[in-house]
Structure formats: structure tokens, C-alpha cells
Design a protein around this nucleic acid. Structure first.
Lengths: 253, 253
DNA sequence: ATGCCTTTGTGAACGCGTGCACAAAGATGG
DNA sequence: CCATCTTTGTGCACGCGTTCACAAAGGCAT
């Protein structure tokens, strides 16, 4: 096995579907906004609208957490904020390290969303010796040599990888070996990790390509009457990349 | 309707499942790497390993595009790169605007992944007059006033929002009104858009919270024999946010 | 040319997620 | 205390996505 291991055997966590878990932060954000406006209760319909989901889905999601609503009234905002926070594990502090303090890493370090709820940037780590000691977002950048000691001393279990793609797997391996069991990967690479380690990836170019696909579809559909394969003319790939700029298109049949 | 509209009626595009579309960029990346190493052909097994997916899934994904493989041999790397690129619409140039040139916006502008395949940063836009004209990633930052004209003059259909959450919906509305039909949202907000506009979001804090959930589960499970609700002690929420730091936990039954 | 071996392409089964629609539950007013 | 009205919680059905397993297809050696 070279790169990936995408089977998810035990992802389903104690009866809470993964899809629900992914929406809880959304609900929490909407609820926090309501809480700040001192709204006491909210119906599933209202909250669902605020979170951009179906109200039935929201109710079913909440049903996995327990019966926290009051029929005829709705949900107590403060109470629900607390319950979801607890379920997500945000009632405790999660020290996080960011590895790779380039443009993106620095932006992440400065991002307020980190410190806000339960997450604390324990250290910024970069391989460039010239970066060492320089303050970024109020923290001195540490050198990669210190990675293991930082992890163990701070009890870090969540690592953020913002390195170039080439360094990501190596950094990942070191993080895991040092005790990190959750990784948020911003590098455009598939990371290979042992069982028990969670990896989530954020990939700009993948998102853009998905958008481009739909964009192309929209553009192609509106100008075409009913043809099967409408695409006007397609440039053969010839850009910088390949050494031989020849056209590989050999449409078989 | 305040915020969201997440129903997806016509997402399924011309027979290609959305899940497949989301994986095509992954395959493309793996194939490009093979292409650079001048590997002529690749089997579904090898490619699947490189992309971190199941080989059966990969074959089924490719089957939606057509019969591009050769039984007993595998897939022609160059040919497949071309086919996937074409399907994703990467054979044409997509001008993109980035709105909100803060830390994150600047990082995105500097990100190489943009220019690489089919995407070209047409303009960087920020609301701060002090930013106007300042070069970021080799491009002068333009003021928000010019947003509409930039969109129309460059034929921009994809917009990236990297503004603070408070400005995101407003920026989104202006982008859409000016003709943008695909949006990549980095702001932590649910965007409301009219039908026909695609929105994809990248949300750091949501990803972290999902990781925290699983992390909490791992930690709770390994130290507990078989108890039902093991969580040791849970701090009541009392942090900075709310004006009244009172405990909303009133466990009902 | 023939048989073997490898690998694709896909039919079928299964499981997860979603949404409908409704009964149960509680609040509220008379 | 009872009727009514609102809103939750959920049983059920449906569709999408994943995976298995295998037949068909093609290359290759003899």
C-alpha cells in the first residue's frame, strides 16, 4: 500500500452518523449567533434555515444526541450550545501545531477561528532555519527538529500540515510517530497513515476543479439544443508540464 | 429565508455522479505525477492506491467517462490525463477573482495551485482603500468598487471569497449579480445563493471540530472499560463569548 | 492459431443518508 | 380540566454510493 487507505471501518461513532457529526459545527455556529443575540429558544425550522439544511434532517441529527427539544416550543439555545459543544469535545482545550509556516501556514496561524473554540495553537513549526525564532501571529516559529519534543511536551494530538506537497508525507509520519492522531492536511497530497489516525484534507485546487466541472456543464447546456457531445473545440494538453508536448488523444472508437 | 439553501436538485450532472466528480481531480493529480515520470500505462489497482481509493470504485468512476482502459493492460496515462482534464473543463482557462486580500486571501493568491491547471487569477479585490494598488503576488489589489466591472470585463464565472464572515454574504450577492455562477467560500458563513449558482465551502474550524469529535471518542474509549457515558468531567461553557457566564446545563432527565 | 493469464467493466446486493409525513408530546388559553 | 395548536421525534421509503464478484476482453507466449 503506497498512499491511501480510505476504508472507514469504525468511523461510525457510537451511533452518531458521520454526516451528522459534520453538520454539528454548522448548527453550533448558528446557535452561537443566536446566543449572542440573547435568543432564548429556536425551532427546528428556524435553526435549519440558519444552518442551511432541511429541518427534518436537523431534527434527526439532534435525535442522535438525545431528546433535547420541547414539543410545541423548540430548542433551548444555550442548552443546545452546551450539548453540542460537549459532544464535539469543545469543552476541553485542544493544543494544535501548525507545520509549514509559509503564506498559508501564517494565514492559518493568524486565523481567529483557531483560538476561539477549544483550539489553541501550541506551536508553529517550519523547516527553514531562517524562520526559526521569527514571530508569527505572536508566536515564535520553532524549527522542525523540535517537532517531536513539542508534540510530547504539549500533549498535542491534532496537527495541521501546511507544507509543500513534497514534505507533507514525511511531516505526517513524524507527527504520527510523535503521538498525533488527527491531521488536517492542506498540502495537495494523499497522506498515508496507520489505522486509528484521522485525516481530513482541505484542497483548494480540487474544489476549484469541481466548480469548473459544473461551470462547464452550465455553459455547455445553455448554448446547446440537444446534441450529445456538445463541447466545441478542445485544446489538446500542451502546456508546460510534460517533456514531450505531443497530443495523446487517440480516440479509439 | 435568511441564510441557507442546501437542497441540491440538479447536482447530478449528465450521468456522472457527484461523488465521482469529486474524485476526478484526485485521479488527475496521481496521473499527472505518473505522466511526469513517463509511466506509459497504469492499472486500476496501482492508480487506486496512488489516489487512496478502492480499485473497484476507480473503475466504476472511469466507466462513467467511457471505456478508456485496455483489459489485461490498464489505462494509458497520457490519454486518461487528457480525458479527465477535458471532462473537468480544465482544457479551457477559468479566470478567477479573489475577494478579501487579508492573510488568507494573500496566501491563496500566492498559491501555485491556481495558475497551474486552467485557473488564472484575474484580479484581487479588497474593500480596504489602503490596500488598493498594492501588489500582492504580482497583481495590484483592486478596490471593491471595481468588482462588477472586473467580473464582466474578464468574463469571470468563478469567485473566491476570503473576506471576514460579516462581509461574505454581501460580497457573494454582488458577485452573483455581476455574473459569477460558482463560488468558493472560505468565510465561516452559510451563503445564500439563487438557483443555478454553485457554492463550495472550505471551513477550517468545521474541519477541526470534526477532528476533535473523533479525537474525543478515541480518548474516551481507550480509558473506559464499558461505561455508557464515560466523559470524565466536563467544564461548563464559561469562556469569553457570552455576556452572562452562567451555566446553561440543566440536564432534564 | 490456441490457450492462458491479466485486468477491465459491470450486474447485483448492501448500507448509509435524506426527506416525507404523521403520531406523540407538551404548552397555552379558555 | 379540557381542547387546541404548535413543534418535536421518528417510522418508512427511496435513491445514491460503495463494494463484491465475475464474465468478457484483450495481450502474450507457445
Amino acid at each position: 500500500m503506497a498512499t491511501g487507505r480510505t476504508h472507514r471501518p469504525a468511523t461510525r461513532s457510537r451511533g452518531i452518523p458521520e454526516a451528522t457529526v459534520a453538520r454539528l459545527p454548522l448548527y453550533l455556529r448558528a446557535l452561537t449567533a443566536l446566543s449572542e443575540r440573547s435568543v432564548p429558544t429556536v425551532s427546528s425550522e428556524e435553526l435549519a434555515a440558519a444552518a442551511g439544511v432541511n429541518s427534518a434532517k436537523l431534527r434527526k441529527d439532534f435525535s442522535y444526541l438525545g431528546s433535547y427539544g420541547t414539543r410545541g416550543v423548540g430548542y433551548d439555545v444555550e442548552y443546545l450550545v452546551y450539548q453540542i459543544s460537549r459532544e464535539l469535545g469543545l469543552t476541553q482545550d485542544w493544543p494544535v501545531v501548525i507545520v509549514g509556516i509559509g503564506n498559508l501556514g501564517a494565514a492559518l496561524a493568524n486565523y481567529g477561528g483557531f483560538a476561539s473554540r477549544g483550539f489553541r495553537v501550541a506551536a508553529l513549526i517550519d523547516a527553514d532555519p531562517a524562520m526559526a525564532g521569527k514571530p508569527v501571529a505572536g508566536l515564535p516559529v520553532r524549527h522542525t527538529d523540535e517537532l517531536e519534543s513539542i508534540i510530547t511536551e504539549n500533549g498535542v494530538s491534532i496537527g495541521v500540515i501546511a507544507t509543500p506537497a513534497g514534505a507533507a508525507q514525511q511531516v505526517c509520519d513524524r507527527l504520527v510517530a510523535a503521538g498525533v492522531t488527527s491531521i488536517l492536511n492542506f498540502a495537495p497530497t494523499v497522506l498515508s497513515v496507520p489505522e486509528g489516525v484521522d485525516v481530513r484534507k482541505v484542497d483548494l485546487s480540487i474544489e476549484l476543479q469541481i466548480l469548473a466541472f459544473h461551470e462547464q456543464r452550465k455553459a455547455g447546456e445553455e448554448s446547446m439544443p440537444s446534441a450529445g457531445q456538445p463541447r466545441a473545440e478542445v485544446r489538446a494538453p500542451e502546456g508546460g508540464k510534460g517533456p514531450d508536448g505531443e497530443i495523446p488523444a487517440v480516440m479509439p472508437a
